[in-house]
C-alpha cells in the first residue's frame, strides 16, 4: 500500500511548500510529506546519505514532487541522478514548477519524468491539480515493485 508511504517535496520556497501541504490536506491525501529545500538534500535523502545517513534506503517515497529551480543542484540534475541510480530509478517523479518553457518540459520528459505540472497562480486550480496528482499516483497507479 502506498497510502502510508512518504511524499518527497523538493521545494525551496516555504510558502509554496506550505501551500502544497495545504492542498494535499484539503485533497485528503494523508501520506507523510517530506520537504527538502534543495537538490542536494533531495539526493541525500533518497540515497540515505549525509544528514539522512542511517535512513532505511529501501523505504522509497511513493512520489517525488520536484521543483526545477533549486539551490545547489538544479531540479533536472536531481531527476537525472534519480533515473541513473538503480535504487531510485523506478520512483515516480512529477515536476511541479512555475516554468512553462518548452525546453524545460522537453528536457524533463527526456530524462524520464512521469508528469509535468505547471503550478497555476490561482490556488483553486493548484489545489485541483494536487488533488488529481494524489488521486492518480497514490491511488490509481499501480506502484513499482521494490528494488532488490
Amino acid at each position: 500500500m502506498s497510502s502510508n508511504k512518504t511524499i518527497l517535496l523538493v521545494e525551496d520556497n516555504p510558502s509554496d511548500a506550505d501551500l502544497t501541504r495545504r492542498a494535499l490536506f484539503k485533497g485528503h491525501i494523508s501520506n507523510e510529506l517530506m520537504v527538502v529545500e534543495d537538490g542536494q538534500e533531495a539526493l541525500d535523502y533518497l540515497r540515505a546519505e549525509g544528514a539522512y545517513a542511517g535512513r532505511n534506503i529501501s523505504e522509497t517515497p511513493a512520489l517525488v514532487l520536484l521543483d526545477l529551480k533549486l539551490p545547489r543542484v538544479p531540479g533536472l540534475e536531481v531527476l537525472r541522478h534519480i533515473r541513473a541510480d538503480p535504487r531510485t530509478r523506478r520512483i515516480p517523479v512529477v515536476i511541479l514548477t512555475s516554468s512553462k518553457e518548452e525546453e524545460d518540459i522537453g528536457a524533463g520528459y527526456d530524462l524520464g519524468v512521469n508528469s509535468y505540472v505547471r503550478k497555476p497562480v490561482d490556488f483553486k486550480e493548484f489545489q485541483i491539480a494536487i488533488e488529481n496528482l494524489g488521486l492518480y499516483w497514490l491511488l490509481l497507479n499501480e506502484p513499482h515493485p521494490p528494488v532488490r
Binding site: 520556497n13 510558502s15 514548477t97 516554468s99 518553457e101 503550478k119 497555476p120 490561482d122 490556488f123 483553486k124
Partner: peptide, 21 residues
C-alpha cells in the same frame, strides 16, 4: 524571462493561495 516566469509567479501564487486560505 525564465526568472520572471518562475520567480514572479511564485509570490503571486502565495498571495492568491493564502488569501484563499
Amino acid at each position: 524571462a525564465y526568472s520572471v516566469s518562475h520567480d514572479l509567479r511564485a509570490p503571486l501564487r502565495g498571495i492568491d493561495g493564502w488569501s484563499l486560505a
